[in-house]
Design a protein around this nucleic acid. Structure first.
Lengths: 161, 161
DNA sequence: GCCGATCTTGACGTGCACGTAAAGGGAAGG
DNA sequence: CCTTCCCTTTACGTGCACGTCAAGATCGGC
């Protein structure tokens, strides 16, 4: 694994810009024990591990978890549980967590499906009565413009195995 | 479409028990305009539509949406936009919403994947050093016991934040 | 009629996740 | 030297989603 990039450090502003968070949020996470950046003088210095943790924190927030829940998940991760009993406990907690995540994914899939059905209905109705209002005119224009753009590249449309 | 079931009504307690919510929450949703149950005297009477909306509300909450966001989504649904222009607007909003949902699903999938990898690592380590701590012994015992239990049914999963 | 249970409407409290000044340190630049 | 800018801590404020009393209204059963 790359040793060069692992030694890179980041200022609080850099991480904020990179992930679209606020400095207040990062300090708050630190206050709650989710981040523990080093200090140069009294200024915070974040390393690769802090960055990775922040990434997980923000992902957890987007999914809708509380900071406490995220805290526990992070603890389970980097504790790298050396105590076998604790690891066994962590394993069960993790499995339960996965079940919750999968339940949530079902909710999400259901929401996506109903939303797409609603879209289909609306498009059909619009197509019948007011096809001029269908996204296609300006939509297609912007699409063409983006294709003409030299540094154009499509979103990977990630399909999960 | 069942006409009989569509005329069923529900008390606030019935819906609470069915969905594992509190009466306070339902009244709160009503206060915010997400539910508009009828009144018999001064008692709330929920019909099938209210029930469906509540279902969507709770699903949205589990996914992590705010009541305002849910409000907007519900409005898009049952407005059954007769105005073509509004419908066109709603369609765009809906498409954007779907994109957000899909982004969130990617977050979720990533979280599930990393969690499962962590589980795999822990199971391998436990299997090497302390295979006795692996879930299987008592886990299987409780599983059998629960299957022997006549009124066996799974917990609806907490939902309490 | 009375009791208890269940419903109602306020009104205030709470936990979370920050936002927002206020007040100051430290280094860079003119 | 002063200003500017970014960093810091401390402390109070905020919006959301309810929880938690408090004080009635209503309704069935005894």
């Amino acid at each position: 694994m790359a040793t060069a990039d692992d030694h890179r450090t980041y200022s609080i502003r850099q991480l904020c810009r990179e992930f679209g968070a606020t400095a207040r949020a990062l300090r708050f996470y630190e206050d709650k024990g989710l981040l523990t950046p080093a200090r140069k003088g009294q200024t915070r210095v974040y390393d690769a591990r802090d960055r990775a943790r922040l990434k997980l924190i923000l992902r957890g927030r987007r999914i809708g978890f509380s900071l406490l829940e995220i805290q526990e998940m992070l603890d389970l991760y980097d504790h790298d549980n050396h105590n076998a009993h604790q690891m066994a406990v962590a394993l069960r907690r993790h499995r339960a967590q996965i079940e919750a995540l999968k339940q949530q994914r079902e909710d999400l899939d259901a929401a996506i499906e109903t939303a797409e059905e609603a879209c289909a209905v609306m498009e059909r109705k619009l197509g019948e009565h007011r096809p001029d209002l269908l996204p296609g005119a300006d939509e297609y224009a912007t699409l063409l413009k983006s294709r003409l753009n030299p540094d154009h590249h499509v979103q990977p449309f990630k399909a999960r195995a």
